[in-house]
Every structure is written in structure tokens, then in C-alpha cells.
Design a protein around this nucleic acid. Structure first.
Length: 600
RNA sequence: GGAGCGGUAGCUCAGUUGGUUAGAGCGCCGGCCUGUCACGCCGGAGGUCGCGGGUUCAAGUCCCGUCCGCUCCGCCA
């Protein structure tokens, strides 16, 4: 028997018991005559005391203990004594009222000095990843791993209670031309052919509905070969859900129950349900984003009406070209620095704006408003925006003028940038603004390619009121999909839709997307075939588990909640993958690299 | 593919206008210490300033190139 208790278990009531603990040496405080050592396992820390009068051999050995040695301590539980009338209890640890008076010490394995200290934050990501197994010993990381486990458990429990079956779908699957770049796996048994790793189990889960499973879920690993970000990894985990004979309302209720359980488990926060819903149109109009951050104001206001005949040519021309003029009021931000203005200009240009029109409202009187453009505005125009934007002394007004979608994007980003600059979200960590964004557009015209694309994916069902519009190309841009996203504090947690279950509607949808019969048969033949044999009405949703856990753990990167993540370039620095392979391995796969060595 | 920030001791960082032998805290090693809990005190070791080139009497510092890390844009149905 290695141990009788874990390191966060013993309390005052255990005093007098003989116990055995195992774990790592957390810290040693060696006073020569008496040695204190904190032993740590995954549950916590317990103080052990070595005194020569108790056991000379163990005490002698305890002098040699170093951080992170693996040890086994046998001893007696004692209530920590009073010394000179002073309590020696330690409130900082849960076992702080007791200590183990050691009678025996075994060093199970010595440790080299670690490349970094576990009790200090370290900024060198490279080093953390190289020694990830040590990084994960740090309490914050250990806690994140545990929270992740508790969250997946809460998810499984909720879905199980609602009759969902967890079913695995293949990882070796077929490449799909739509969407992200696939990771490919060459097939040895079919020379020259490739599997693709799934970007999502989309088609399999719909086929499970045809199979009569009715309620499916999977905590599924997905793969996308695209560039990475703090919240994007080449392999990531989705909570993938699909159900038959359900409506949007059923999906909303299931996800609300699930997320509420997740945040109660992970953070002890009761999330009120049902979540509010806003339409995609409203989200874009007010917040300039389909995943709005609504914990601060600064909403977008349309002022197009006031500038139709403006003396300011930039606004007037934008409106004449079918565009809009909109603005946000960054309350109290008139004192913005020139550097910050420059930064905002960059943000606006990144989003496609030609420039950035702004007003620093120094005083109540219009002639105190500082701005490169205000001299072109009439008194009526100034009065109108003062009223619509609720302008007061000390405000900063930022304008966007262009076509609707560009203005949404520009002001949406400026709004977030102003928030970051002013710390408007400080102290709002525990405010959880869950909401649904509904009525997404179904199709979106790609001007570069000159074709219509599916906003969500080609299996998304059109809104029942808009199905007829599919026959009239001029109306395609206005078709809503039966699609929805669930958003938390400006982060897309997941999205889904009701699906097309009729073969003829699906074929029509493919034609709208410019996918001809041959391509349909080649890439989607199995699903179109399946739909001919009594496919039930169905729909579903997928949530990004990594991002969900990240938010629950209040981390800023999903790498903090993944045990062994990849770096920015998709590399695992611990195992040095990806790596070159043997010529022999390639030959078996009928593969040959065309990479040229860089010449000097 | 593009932009920004960073790379100085094992770790976290400082390093002024280019100027003597590149510093601090933590860690590490040794010594002292019987009630600490970030133990304390004394002493010590530890550096190719990412790499290459250039300017200069002189480069951690300036210039060019390059590699690596992080963040963002593009991209991610």
C-alpha cells in the first residue's frame, strides 16, 4: 500500500492516527534541528515535520530532500502546537491545522532541478511547452485539467438525462471540398488515395439520424489545417449534438440546461435561462458583430437620415452609393491620445474603412467640439447627432460610412477597441451574458468567386417562411436560415441549424451553391442517397469545448485548457512533431516529398 | 501571406546618449540555524546579451539580414 490518505484529507479529527502519504516535495524549510516539508499530491499539500528525537535516520535523510523528489512519508497526525502562546496553524492550506510527525521517510525517486519554478508564472511559452509535463504540475494548470473533466462530465450527464446517446464517428474519413483545409492521411492499401481527418462529424451525425438514433452526441476531436490563434488549434474538441423530431426550441432548451450546468459546476454561477435571443440583423446593427459583446453599451446608432444632403462630401457620397452613415459614442473618451486615435484609425482601415471620422467633445457648445470634419457639418446636423447619440461633454464620437456590412464591421471593431482601451469590462468577469443569435442569413454572395456560398453549411435548412425565395435568385441574399449561434460575452460558443432532410430540397440547395450533379454525386452521394430512405426531420448544434472550458476557467488561450497543445505553427515542441519520416515509410505509401532544401 | 511586440544568468526582468569588469530578485550549491510555512542569516557558482553580417576607436545598445516565441489581420463552410 502506497498511502492511507491523500494530501488534502487529514484534519484535526484525525489526530493520533498513523498514516502514510505519497507525493512530491513541494517545499523544504530546513532549520537543521527541525525540518518542515510540504508534501504535495494532486489533491493538495500537507506539512510533515522531521525531528531527530522522533527518528534520527528519517531526519538525517530529510536534509537531502529537494524540490520535486517523489517520497513516501509515514508518521503520526498531530494538531499543530502552540509555541509561546502563538498558534502555528496555517490558514493558507486546507490541512493547515495538522501536521505529520514523520517516523519514516522513503525517497521513491529523486528529481533533477526543474528548468523553471512551479510557484512562479513563466512567460516563456516555448519552455513551458517543451516541459509540458512539468507545466501541468502547476496548480493553475492542474486545476484547469480538473475543471475540463468536470465540465465534460456535466455535459455527458445533462445529455444522458435527456436521452442522448454518445456515439463515436470515424476519424479517418473523406475529404470535403467545402470549408477549411483538410489534414490528409495517405492510404497504404489504396495507393494514391487519401483519407481526410474530419473538420466536424457533420455528415456522420446526419446519417445517424437517418439510422434512427434520434438523439446523438459526441465529444469529438476535429481537425482543420488553417493558421492558428490563441483560441484556435489544428486539433480541437467539439461537443457535437444532433437530434430528430425536434424544433429550434428543443435545441435551445437542451443547450441552455447544459451550459447552465457547466457554469454551475465550474464556477458556481447560476445562469438564468432561457437565454435572450437577438436576430442576426439586430446584432449587426447594434454591435457590428454576429457574436456581440453586450456587457458594455456604446451601441451603434444610424445617422444616415441626417446626412443625405450633407455638406460633408464623404458622407453624402457614401449615402448616394447606397451606403449608410453610423456612429458610436465612446462615453467619456474625449481625452483620447493621438497615439490611440492612430490605433483606432488602423483598426478602422483593417476593417475596410477609408479613414476614421471622429469628434472629441470637449465642451457642451458645438464650437468646442474638436474634429477634423465637424467644420463641414451644419448646425442642424450637429444638433441631430447630439440628440441621437446622446452626446455630452467628454464623449468621443466615431463615425463609419460605407456599405452596410463594412460599417458594421468597422464600428463593431472600434467599439471593442475602445472598450479595451478604457477597461470597460473591468470587474465584470462574473457577468455571463449568454444569448442566442438567430435568423442568420442562409446565403452570402462571394464577389471574388462570383457565386453564392452557404453562410453556415450546405445542409442548413432555409427558414420556413423563406423557402419559396430559393426559386428567385434576386431574393437569395434575403433568405434566412434556420440557424442559430450561442454566444457568451462576445465569444461564439457554438452554432447549429435545422437541417434539410428532403432529397429534392437538398439537391436544389446544391444547385444554388453551384455544385453540379456530378459533384453532388461524387462528394455527397451517400447523404443524398440516405435522404431517399425516410430521413427524419432533424437538426443540431456543435459547441467548441476548448473555448467553453477556457471561458469557464477565465483563461485567455485555449492552450491553457488543453493538456498537450500545439504552438503557433502547429508544432508540438515536446515531441518535436511534425517531423520528417523515413524514406521507407514514404515508399510504402507511394509518397515522395517535393520540398526543396533552401539554398544559401 | 501581412503587421505588431518580444528574445540579456536555470527562471522573471532591469540595463540611461554607444563608453571601465553586463546587474537585481527568485532558483541552484556550500555553511549556520529546533516552529517554519515565499523560513531567516552568511558565502559562492552561474552570461557566445537568439544567430550572422555591418557602422564605429568602442555595440546588449545603432543599421541590415535571419531564426524562434507570442498577439492580431487575412484564412478558419
Amino acid at each position: 500500500m502506497y498511502r492511507t490518505h491523500h494530501c488534502n484529507e487529514l484534519r484535526k479529527s484525525d489526530a493520533g492516527e498513523n498514516v502514510i502519504l505519497v507525493g512530491w516535495v513541494n517545499t523544504v524549510r530546513d532549520h537543521h534541528g527541525v525540518i518542515f516539508m510540504d508534501i504535495r499530491d494532486r489533491e493538495g499539500v500537507t506539512q510533515c515535520v522531521f525531528r531527530s528525537e522522533e527518528n534520527a535516520d528519517a531526519t538525517a535523510l530529510s536534509h537531502t530532500l529537494r524540490s520535486e523528489d517523489v517520497i513516501q512519508v509515514t508518521g503520526r497526525v498531530e494538531v499543530r502546537p502552540e509555541i509561546d502562546g502563538q498558534s502555528t496553524f496555517n490558514d493558507a492550506i486546507e490541512t493547515g491545522e495538522i501536521e505529520i510527525v514523520a517516523t519514516e521517510l522513503k525517497i521513491l525517486n529523486k528529481s533533477e532541478v526543474l528548468p523553471f519554478q512551479l510557484d512562479k508564472e513563466l512567460s516563456n511559452e516555448d519552455l513551458r511547452m517543451k516541459h509540458r509535463y512539468l507545466d501541468l504540475r502547476r496548480p493553475r494548470m492542474a486545476k484547469n485539467l480538473r475543471t475540463r473533466h468536470e465540465i465534460t462530465k456535466a455535459i455527458r450527464n445533462t445529455l444522458d438525462e435527456q436521452g442522448f446517446l454518445e456515439i463515436e464517428t470515424p476519424v479517418l474519413s473523406k475529404s470535403t471540398p467545402e470549408g477549411a483545409r483538410d489534414f490528409l492521411v495517405p492510404s497504404r492499401l489504396s495507393p494514391g488515395k487519401f483519407y481526410a481527418l474530419p473538420q466536424a462529424p457533420q455528415q456522420y451525425k446526419q446519417l445517424l439520424m437517418v439510422a434512427g438514433v434520434e438523439r446523438y452526441f459526441q465529444i469529438a476531436r476535429c481537425f482543420r489545417d488553417e493558421d492558428l490563434r490563441a483560441d484556435r488549434q489544428p486539433e480541437f474538441t467539439q461537443v457535437d449534438i444532433e437530434a430528430s423530431f425536434i424544433t429550434e426550441e428543443d435545441i435551445y432548451a437542451t443547450i441552455e440546461a447544459m451550459l447552465s450546468s457547466v457554469f454551475e459546476t465550474a464556477r458556481g454561477i447560476k445562469v438564468p435561462t432561457p437565454f435572450p435571443r437577438i436576430t442576426h440583423q439586430e446584432a449587426m446593427d447594434k454591435y457590428g458583430s454576429d457574436k456581440p459583446e453586450r456587457r458594455f453599451g456604446c451601441e451603434i446608432v444610424d445617422v444616415t437620415e441626417h446626412f443625405k444632403d450633407s455638406g460633408f462630401g464623404v458622407f453624402k457620397r457614401a449615402i448616394e452609393g447606397g451606403g449608410v452613415v453610423r456612429a458610436i459614442n465612446a462615453k467619456g473618451f474625449a481625452g483620447i491620445s493621438t497615439g490611440q486615435i492612430k490605433r483606432l484609425e488602423e483598426v478602422a482601415k483593417e476593417a475596410g474603412a477609408g479613414g476614421l471620422a471622429y469628434i472629441q467633445v470637449r465642451g457642451a457648445a458645438h464650437d468646442t467640439w474638436r474634429s477634423p470634419i465637424v467644420k463641414f457639418f451644419s448646425e442642424e446636423e450637429l444638433a441631430a447627432i447630439e440628440k441621437d447619440l446622446n452626446i455630452e461633454e467628454g464623449d468621443l464620437i466615431l463615425f463609419g460610412c460605407d456599405k452596410w456590412s463594412t460599417v458594421c464591421d468597422v464600428l463593431g471593431r472600434l467599439r471593442l477597441e475602445c472598450c479595451a482601451m478604457n477597461g470597460w469590462l473591468e470587474g465584470k468577469d462574473d457577468v455571463l451574458d449568454f444569448h442566442w443569435v438567430i435568423d442568420f442569413p442562409l446565403l452570402d454572395y462571394d464577389e471574388e468567386e462570383g457565386k453564392w456560398n452557404a453562410v453556415h453549411h450546405p445542409f442548413t435548412r432555409p427558414h420556413p417562411d423563406d423557402v419559396a425565395l430559393l426559386d428567385d435568385e434576386s431574393k437569395w441574399g434575403g433568405i434566412r436560415g434556420a440557424a442559430y449561434d450561442v454566444v457568451l460575452n462576445g465569444n461564439e460558443l457554438g452554432g447549429g441549424s435545422l437541417r434539410i432532410h428532403e432529397g429534392d430540397l437538398q439537391a436544389k440547395m446544391f444547385r444554388v451553391l453551384g455544385i453540379d450533379d456530378e459533384e453532388q454525386a461524387g462528394n455527397f452521394g451517400h447523404i443524398l442517397g440516405a435522404f431517399q430512405y425516410g430521413a427524419p426531420p432533424h437538426g443540431g448544434i456543435a459547441l467548441g469545448l476548448d473555448r467553453l472550458v477556457m471561458l469557464a476557467c477565465q483563461e485567455h488561450s485555449i492552450r491553457e485548457v488543453i493538456a498537450f497543445p500545439k504552438n503557433n505553427k502547429g508544432m508540438d515542441l515536446m515531441s518535436s512533431s511534425p517531423a520528417e519520416v523515413d524514406f521507407k515509410q514514404l515508399r510504402e505509401l507511394y509518397m515522395k516529398s517535393t520540398v526543396q532544401e533552401k539554398k544559401d
